[in-house]
Computed example of a mutant assay.
Amino acid sequence: MFQIIFHRGKCIGCNGCVEAAPDRWRISRKDGRCNLIEGKEKKGIYRALISIEEYAQNFQAANNCPVRIIQIARI
């Protein structure tokens, strides 16, 4: 099991995460930043649990992020 950790307030809306993992990421129509689907927010940081099957796409999403605000942690 893995966890995505996403600092949404620092997102620049480049869409790199959405291209890599469209089932987990979406661009917000309100502010142009990305949203972590099924992410739970606490103090501006969003977290979501993912399975090993989602790991590769979300690892690529984290690597695509130019501001490095997506981390993937094993839990």
Rank of each mutant, 00 (worst) to 15 (best):
C34V: 03
E19V: 03
K42G: 07
G39P: 08
C65L: 09
R26W: 02
I69K: 07
A48R: 07
N35A: 02
C65G: 12
R47W: 01
V18G: 01
I75V: 14
R68Y: 05
M1A: 06
R26T: 11
R47P: 04
I4P: 01
N58T: 12
I27N: 00
R26G: 05
R8H: 04
A21C: 13
K10E: 15
I70Y: 01
I37V: 14
C11R: 00
Q57D: 15
I50W: 05
G32N: 02
Q3I: 09
Y55T: 09
Q3T: 10
A62K: 12
A56R: 15
I75M: 10
E54F: 08
I37N: 03
H7K: 15
I4W: 00
N58A: 09
G44S: 12
W25G: 01
N63K: 15
I50D: 05
E54R: 08
N35C: 02
Q71I: 00
A61K: 09
Y46V: 05
K40L: 12
M1F: 02
K42R: 11
D31E: 01
I12G: 09
C34F: 00
C17G: 02
L36M: 04
A61L: 06
I72S: 06
K43G: 14
R29I: 05
R33K: 12
A21H: 08
N63R: 15
G44E: 14
V67N: 13
A48M: 02
E41K: 07
G16K: 05
N35L: 08
R29S: 14
K42Q: 14
G16A: 08
C11P: 03
I70Q: 01
Y55P: 08
L36T: 01
S51H: 01
I27C: 00
I45H: 09
E19S: 04
I12D: 07
R29G: 13
F2Y: 15
I75T: 15
L36W: 02
Y46N: 03
N15C: 11
I52E: 13
F2M: 01
W25I: 04
E54I: 06
I27T: 08
D31W: 00
L49S: 12
K42M: 13
I52Y: 04
I27D: 00
I5A: 02
G9L: 11
K30N: 09
G9Q: 14
F59I: 13
A62Y: 04
I12A: 07
A48E: 04
E19K: 09
N64W: 06
C14R: 11
P66R: 10
R33D: 01
E38M: 08
I69V: 10
C65E: 06
N58S: 11
A61S: 10
C11T: 03
